[in-house]
Simulated scan of single mutants.
Amino acid sequence: MRDRQLSRGARRAREFEAFVAGAAGRLLHAATLLTAEAPDASPRARRLLTLALAHTYAHWDRLHGEDPYDCARQYLASRFARTTWHQYGAFGRARPDPRSPLAVLTPRERLILVLRLYEGVAEEQAAALLGLPTERVHTICDRATATLLHPPRPAPPRTVGREVAPS
């Protein structure tokens, strides 16, 4: 009995290690896009990834044929949404790194854009995951895409001060 448990535990560990070897890079990239951190300095993204992988490992035996990547991605997205809500209020703006390609987007826009375009999640699934109507997800995704394609122009520098003397 004890040998069977050890064998099962070793098999579980090998399966999970193989999953992490194949999926961690893509999940880290998704987390880095979500947090809008620089790719070379992404502590929040790494924490999100660690939490998502720990959650997936904890539920490994209960997946029963479900895709572990989908489980990890769902946890990553929901954890990002929850943390952003609590830290910044109603998907408030964190201070993204200007080197991030998605820095101009709000956290909600980043979340929906990453789920829809980078991860290929259907609108209906993204809406269900986030608790939003499908139309709202569609609108936010369109707005985020338009913002990335046509970024807002920086405000012109304001000149202070030189008054023209009357002639």
Rank of each mutant, 00 (worst) to 15 (best):
residue 85 W to T: 08
residue 114 V to M: 00
residue 136 R to P: 00
residue 70 D to A: 15
residue 64 H to W: 13
residue 154 P to H: 14
residue 7 S to K: 14
residue 105 L to A: 07
residue 15 E to R: 09
residue 122 A to K: 15
residue 15 E to K: 06
residue 149 L to N: 09
residue 143 R to M: 05
residue 9 G to I: 11
residue 46 R to Y: 00
residue 37 E to R: 02
residue 75 Y to W: 13
residue 39 P to K: 09
residue 22 G to T: 07
residue 141 C to D: 10
residue 150 H to G: 04
residue 62 R to S: 12
residue 13 A to M: 10
residue 92 G to L: 07
residue 9 G to P: 03
residue 147 T to K: 15
residue 95 R to I: 13
residue 98 P to Y: 01
residue 67 D to G: 03
residue 76 L to F: 05
residue 50 T to W: 09
residue 148 L to A: 05
residue 132 L to Q: 10
residue 4 R to G: 00
residue 79 R to Q: 09
residue 155 A to Y: 11
residue 70 D to Y: 14
residue 14 R to C: 14
residue 49 L to M: 07
residue 70 D to H: 12
residue 103 A to C: 12
residue 85 W to R: 09
residue 21 A to C: 13
residue 100 S to M: 02
residue 88 Y to T: 09
residue 163 E to P: 03
residue 4 R to W: 11
residue 42 S to R: 04
residue 8 R to W: 07
residue 42 S to W: 05
residue 141 C to Q: 10
residue 38 A to L: 00
residue 81 A to T: 04
residue 120 G to I: 06
residue 101 P to W: 11
residue 55 H to K: 15
residue 59 H to R: 08
residue 18 A to W: 10
residue 18 A to R: 14
residue 70 D to I: 03
residue 13 A to D: 13
residue 97 D to C: 02
residue 113 L to A: 08
residue 9 G to N: 12
residue 94 A to G: 13
residue 70 D to G: 15
residue 75 Y to M: 05
residue 139 T to A: 08
residue 156 P to V: 01
residue 135 E to G: 15
residue 109 E to C: 13
residue 128 A to F: 04
residue 151 P to F: 07
residue 33 L to R: 02
residue 141 C to V: 13
residue 82 R to E: 12
residue 24 A to R: 07
residue 15 E to T: 07
residue 4 R to A: 14
residue 92 G to I: 03
residue 103 A to P: 01
residue 117 L to C: 10
residue 21 A to D: 15
residue 39 P to A: 14
residue 86 H to T: 08
residue 81 A to F: 00
residue 99 R to S: 15
residue 17 E to D: 15
residue 162 R to T: 09
residue 71 C to V: 10
residue 30 A to R: 06
residue 84 T to A: 06
residue 116 R to S: 11
residue 18 A to M: 10
residue 100 S to I: 01
residue 133 P to H: 12
residue 35 T to I: 02
residue 80 F to Y: 15
residue 138 H to E: 13
residue 161 G to Q: 07
residue 159 T to F: 12
residue 84 T to R: 04
residue 123 E to M: 00
residue 12 R to L: 08
